[in-house]
């Protein structure tokens, strides 16, 4: 399966399994989503389970919160993560806090899917990576898969989770893995082992990272598209790095990270999002606090530049394998 098909399969499985699950968002109903992630679901389950909404993100989030509090399991879509800002009030001040502020009187078991990330000539408002704006909010869970297999298992776990989950889907990985080399012919998921996705129900627990490559010289922390950029940079540099795909950013699997950095003594953080106050800052702080006496070099981060995502300069902005390799070299030199 592609990641699109895997996500669709997760929703299909959950719609069939739990009558409380409802899917909605802009264009997700009849048309099946601008990325085809919900194709065929309305036809299969009917309009009461899968439906289109007006173009109003705060309404999408607000409706989802009301439904979730009443006992449904809404899985709503924001067409691009870049357009979540009108819903930010509902997500951060309401969904994230309802359980706490009502002392459990009301809860908010909802999932909000958002295609995220760049590398697609999406320009300023089709490329953003706003994960740090969610990881800073107590009460949310934040997930970002990098493979079809993980995407399905994590989305099922997110829909089943009793708390609000922000589910960020790297749209650059929808149809195939991408290592940042935009000059190469793109490969589909069919050729990748993680494209082998079971049709049936399975789940990947939230809060658990995945060690994508074992290594002894360096720990690379990445998620989404940057996992493949890391793999490529490791191949290019020949450094025996351990690559950790975080999968869940909040809550963070600090134990897996700690075990790795204690082994390697070095750490590189990769993300597409802008640098200042990005999630990388949090990762560096956690590693520094947890592994200080094991560190042999300063922790380095390779990220998007502190500028709005440009159009023409896509590959100067996107942190590709060359910049990742330079980051690896810096950590290894020190």
């Amino acid at each position: 399966m592609t990641m699109i098909e895997a996500l669709r399969s997760a929703m299909d499985v959950m719609l069939a399994r739990d009558e409380r699950v409802v899917i909605f968002g802009e264009d997700v109903g009849y048309f099946g989503g601008v990325f085809r992630c919900t194709q065929g679901l309305q036809k299969k389950y009917g309009e009461e389970r899968v439906f289109d909404t007006p173009i109003n993100e705060s309404a999408i989030a607000g409706m989802a919160i009301g439904m979730a509090a009443q006992g449904m399991r809404p899985c709503a879509e924001i067409q691009f993560a870049d357009y979540m800002y009108p819903a930010y009030d509902q997500i951060t001040q309401e969904a994230a806090r309802i359980r706490h502020r009502s002392n459990g009187d009301f809860t908010c078991p909802l999932t909000i899917r958002m295609p995220t990330g760049g590398g697609i000539y999406g320009g300023q408002t089709h490329s953003q990576s706003p994960e740090a704006l969610f990881t800073h909010v107590a009460g949310l869970k934040v997930v970002q898969p990098s493979t079809p297999y993980d995407a399905k298992g994590l989305l099922i776990a997110s829909i089943e989770d009793p708390d609000p989950v922000i589910f960020l889907e790297p749209k650059r990985l929808y149809n195939g893995p991408f290592d940042g080399d935009h000059t190469a012919t793109s490969q589909g998921w069919a050729q990748h082992p993680a494209g082998d996705v079971p049709e049936e129900y399975y789940r990947i627990d939230l809060g658990k990272a995945s060690v994508r490559r074992e290594g002894a010289a360096l720990t690379i922390l990445a998620y989404g598209t940057m996992v493949f950029v890391a793999e490529r940079a490791v191949r290019d540099t020949g450094v025996d790095a351990e690559i950790i795909d975080l999968r869940t950013l909040l809550p963070l699997d600090l134990e897996t990270i700690r075990a790795s950095v204690e082994k390697t003594g070095r750490c590189l953080v990769l993300h597409e999002a802008t640098r200042t106050s990005g999630f990388g800052g949090e990762l560096i702080a956690e590693v520094q606090e947890a592994c200080f006496w094991h560190l042999e070099a300063p922790i380095v981060r390779v990220t998007g530049w502190d500028a709005p995502y440009p159009h023409a300069q896509e590959w100067d902005y996107f942190p590709g394998p060359k910049r990742a390799a330079r980051g690896i070299a810096r950590v290894m030199e020190a």
């Binding site: 409802v22 009461e48 705060s58 309404a59 607000g62 409706m63 989802a64 919160i65 009301g66 439904m67 979730a68 509090a69 009443q70 006992g71 449904m72 809404p74 009030d89 509902q90 001040q93 309401e94």
Partner: peptide, 15 residues
Amino acid sequence: TQYVQAVGWAMANAL
């Protein structure tokens, strides 16, 4: 915020 949440809750009632 609660105004549209009320709508969502009522939608769940109808569903």
